[in-house]
């Protein structure tokens, strides 16, 4: 059974994929940067002695997605697992004054993912198997002034995935929503984050792997974010709106 990873450059994606590779699954790395997915595929095939290959995909090039998925399925009939990690944090301030930035944030985190998910859903629904995992974020649980563009795209994604899970349940297809807290990756590099709350990509990757195998619905990773978010979402709006978050 094979794993398709979309957003191959992400350290979280690689960490999660390493567990699948170690267990002997074939890995297909999808990404948009020239050569990079191939370098990972090559590295994985040496490191884990498993079959790996790279495919080119840009989350924002929607018309290309149909052919991409068809090609992957044609070459990989035993595709079982899909992990989608596309994401773009962007800059909140820029997004407020420049709509192209807001657009890119929404499209990369939401529209691009929806486009791919629908194609996969149709296929998995018809064969009555499959396991789709998507990285959303704790930022999608409640909008905050410091990153509500990204947060709302992820929030939309979370709601979308909840619906998709509901739809595909009867077909035996699992949909996993992954909500990481802060993770030490190039996305957050250089940001002044509270160190004790920052997880390693390895930790998050392992949580994702376990949750995919257990066919979970929603996970927070590390787990304590469930409690942090519970507190944040229970603050009444009249108070929340006054906070500097």
């Amino acid at each position: 059974m094979s794993l398709l990873v979309l957003g191959a450059n992400s350290l979280i994606a690689q960490a999660a994929a390493s567990h699948f590779a170690e267990a002997g699954h074939e890995i297909i790395f999808g990404g948009r940067k020239q050569d990079e997915p191939e370098k990972y595929a090559n590295d994985f095939s040496i490191r884990y002695k498993t079959k790996c290959r790279a495919e080119y995909i840009d989350a924002l090039d929607y018309p290309s997605h149909k052919k991409f998925i068809e090609d992957v399925l044609a070459k990989t009939p035993d595709l079982e697992y899909v992990l989608i990690v596309f994401g773009y944090l962007g800059t909140q301030e820029k997004a407020q004054s420049d709509f192209t930035e807001a657009h890119r944030i929404i499209d990369t985190n939401f529209t691009g993912v929806v486009s791919v998910c629908e194609l996969l859903a149709a296929e998995f629904e018809s064969v009555k198997k499959g396991n789709i995992a998507v990285i959303s974020s704790v930022a999608g649980d409640r909008g905050r002034q410091s990153n509500y563009m990204y947060g709302s795209a992820k929030g939309g994604l979370t709601v979308y995935l909840s619906g998709l899970r509901n739809r595909l349940f009867k077909s035996g297809v699992n949909v996993l929503t992954i909500k990481p807290g802060f993770v030490n990756t190039p996305m957050t590099y250089g940001m002044p984050l509270p160190k004790p709350l920052v997880a390693s990509p390895e930790k998050v990757g392992k949580d994702i792997y376990k949750a995919m195998l257990k066919r979970k619905g929603v996970i927070y990773t590390p787990f304590f974010w469930r409690w942090i978010m519970l507190i944040i979402t229970s603050i009444p709006e009249f108070m929340f709106k006054k906070l500097k978050l």
Binding site: K39, Y40, N42, D43, I46, P186
Partner: peptide, 9 residues
């Protein structure tokens, strides 16, 4: 640290 891939063995 991000350049940590095997190329061939």
């Amino acid at each position: 640290l991000l350049m940590n891939r095997f190329i061939s063995f």
